[in-house]
Amino acid sequence: HGGRPMKRALAWIRVAVTFIVELGKSTIAVVRAVLGPTERLRPAILAVPLDIRSSAGKVLFANMVTLTPGTTSLDISPDGRILYVHVLDAPDRDAAIADMKATLESRVREVLP
């Protein structure tokens, strides 16, 4: 089990790096949205199905979503399987959900399934 603490540490580092990358991309997107024509924005409330099962994982994912500019976690369904997220601009709802799941949620699942 000598490599296990190292694997966990590397997984947490991947979570942090992914979050920082998403933070940068979202910051740029929000700046463009604010400086551009606002009538082009397509705000939406998205129902993001969760593959995370642990309470700690859901909290971490929801907090990462909220801390990313342009998105805010609103609520979680009573059964804990859907996170409702407000998005400043989501011209393609399915793509926005897929992006959150492929980046932030997938990394969270590595450390808090």
Rank of each mutant, 00 (worst) to 15 (best):
H1V: 03
G3I: 00
G3Q: 08
P5L: 01
M6R: 08
K7P: 07
L10T: 01
L10Y: 03
L10W: 05
A11I: 02
W12V: 04
W12D: 03
W12M: 10
I13Q: 10
R14S: 11
T18R: 00
I20T: 09
I20D: 01
V21M: 02
E22R: 08
G24Y: 11
S26R: 04
T27F: 14
T27P: 05
T27N: 15
A29P: 15
V31G: 04
V31T: 09
V31W: 07
A33T: 02
V34S: 11
P37G: 15
P37K: 14
R40K: 14
R40Y: 12
R40G: 10
L41V: 10
L41I: 06
R42F: 14
P43M: 13
P43C: 09
I45F: 12
I45P: 07
A47N: 12
V48D: 02
P49H: 06
P49F: 02
L50P: 13
R53I: 10
S54E: 15
S55N: 14
S55W: 08
G57H: 02
K58P: 05
K58S: 04
L60R: 09
F61Q: 11
N63H: 04
N63D: 10
M64V: 01
M64T: 00
M64H: 08
V65T: 06
V65Y: 07
T66H: 03
L67C: 10
L67N: 09
T68K: 07
P69F: 14
P69G: 12
T71M: 14
T72E: 10
S73F: 06
D75V: 00
D75K: 13
I76N: 09
D79F: 07
G80A: 02
R81W: 00
I82C: 06
I82D: 03
V85Y: 04
V85E: 00
L88F: 10
L88T: 06
P91T: 11
P91D: 12
D92P: 05
R93N: 15
R93M: 11
R93Q: 15
I97P: 08
I97D: 12
A98F: 06
A98C: 01
M100I: 07
K101C: 09
T103G: 05
E105S: 10
S106Q: 14
R107C: 06
V108M: 07
R109C: 01
V111D: 00
V111H: 01
P113Q: 05
P113N: 11
